[in-house]
Design a protein around this nucleic acid. Structure first.
Ligand code: MN
Ligand code: MN
Ligand code: MN
Ligand code: MN
Lengths: 220, 220
DNA sequence: TTCAAAAGTTTGACGACTCAAACTTTGTTG
DNA sequence: CAACAAAGTTTGAGTCGTCAAACTTTTGAA
């Protein structure tokens, strides 16, 4: 089995590859993500390559091998099932569960994970709207577009928040923008670089475009 | 915070001290318990002493400091609450949960532990009858005497199994001797070194004295 | 009392993970 | 194109946790 550290690097590489248009991860971003120096990240990447989990040509981008992807989706599945449990069963705060799951994801056996999944009713997304990979390693990442991509008057349902940052999540929850909530695009201001949403009758929220880009929604 | 390895050593030392009549742990037994060589255990003990978690005079017995005891009870609390959850909520097998808790016990934050404890209704013992230390670090170890200590005809209730070994736990469960069950001492055979119990009307079980010594019960 | 076996310690070495700091390559940009 | 910043790599060193094997101390039988 991959060590806890290895799992963390692989998961981070997976997420970075998703995010980047080139589909490759970079050393500096990876180092930031796992909170080590870039030298440390470089040496770990060499080890991951030896373990056949990544491909990393010298001075070039990092990508996961098929095996690496499998490990990443496995960790992600554990992470998201745990988050779901912490929120829906133990009533922990939406914004706090990421950190906790970050540790617990490495300590669950397959059997216990499956029992937990069963207990939760086999959920398809976690509390942030992130899709939960299946036990066989399949995941449907595509659901919804960024709030900033909709036109004025659009009635949409929030489906996913693409950010684990506690402060951001607190703000999102405060604004009543959790997944499942329906909102209307009230105004778009390219000059002001912002978007205004009507959450409920009489309650509206203004977000910067960069914030709106991290909130996915779908029509109706 | 103490590292996972440190927590495991401290917990093992606590348990060994409980078990031994002298109240002290030995290096060889400790090494067995945490599954390392005795040389490794010795060097770890030196580190634990530097951390002020144990007292360990050279060539003599190991004891926990007040701080060490606090750490041990904290880990034990986490371990037992997790075992309770795994059995009573996720329906995992009585005999399997020890291993699982052995890993999870190091990954729970105090807040999550408390929520879990609350969710479970603040249980006072785990599925094996082991007492759960309070959040403030108090525990009542004394409850019941070994089955082998009762006289013929005694009607007793099983309260605790002093062994985490899977095979033994499977056997105990098979025999219907889980905590909470009431049995009658049917026969004692000092020659045969065994004890026979009536579990239900018509169903009886014979145990060796050494097995019976690991099962605690109380009158009535 | 003696002395072997058991208990405990020391030594030298290793793998995993990390850092700081010096270094090399790559990609812009004037 | 030159040169410079950003990205990536290398080097040397340190901590943690571990082993095997040689060593020392304690202890309990003969
Ligand atoms: Mn993690
Ligand atoms: Mn999430
Ligand atoms: Mn453990
Ligand atoms: Mn137990």
């Amino acid at each position: 089995m991959a060590t806890e550290t290895v799992e963390n690097y692989i998961k981070a590489i997976y997420v970075l590859c998703r995010e980047s248009p080139s589909g490759e991860a970079g050393v500096v971003r990876l180092a930031q993500e796992v909170d080590v120096t870039k030298g440390t990240a470089t040496s770990m990447i060499k080890r991951l390559a030896k373990l056949k989990l990544v491909k990393a040509p010298r001075y070039s981008g990092i990508t996961l091998t098929t095996m690496g992807k499998k490990v990443a989706l496995d960790v992600l599945r554990r992470h998201r099932i745990i988050e779901t449990f912490l929120v829906s069963t133990l009533n922990l705060d939406w914004a706090d569960v990421h950190e906790e799951a970050e540790r617990l994801e490495h300590a669950l056996s397959p059997r216990t994970l499956d029992r937990l999944d069963e207990f939760l009713g086999r959920p398809s997304t976690d509390p942030h709207g992130d899709p939960i990979p299946s036990a066989s390693g399949k995941v449907s990442e595509l659901r919804g577009k960024a709030l900033s991509a909709y036109i004025k008057g659009a009635k949409v349902e929030i489906v996913r928040i693409l950010d684990q940052d506690r402060a951001f999540l607190k703000f999102v929850a405060q604004s009543g923008l959790k997944p499942g909530v329906c909102v209307t695009v009230q105004a778009l201001s390219p000059e002001g670089d912002s978007i205004t949403l009507q959450v409920k009758r009489g309650q509206s929220v203004t977000l910067s475009s960069s914030a709106a880009a991290k909130i996915l929604a779908r029509l109706q």
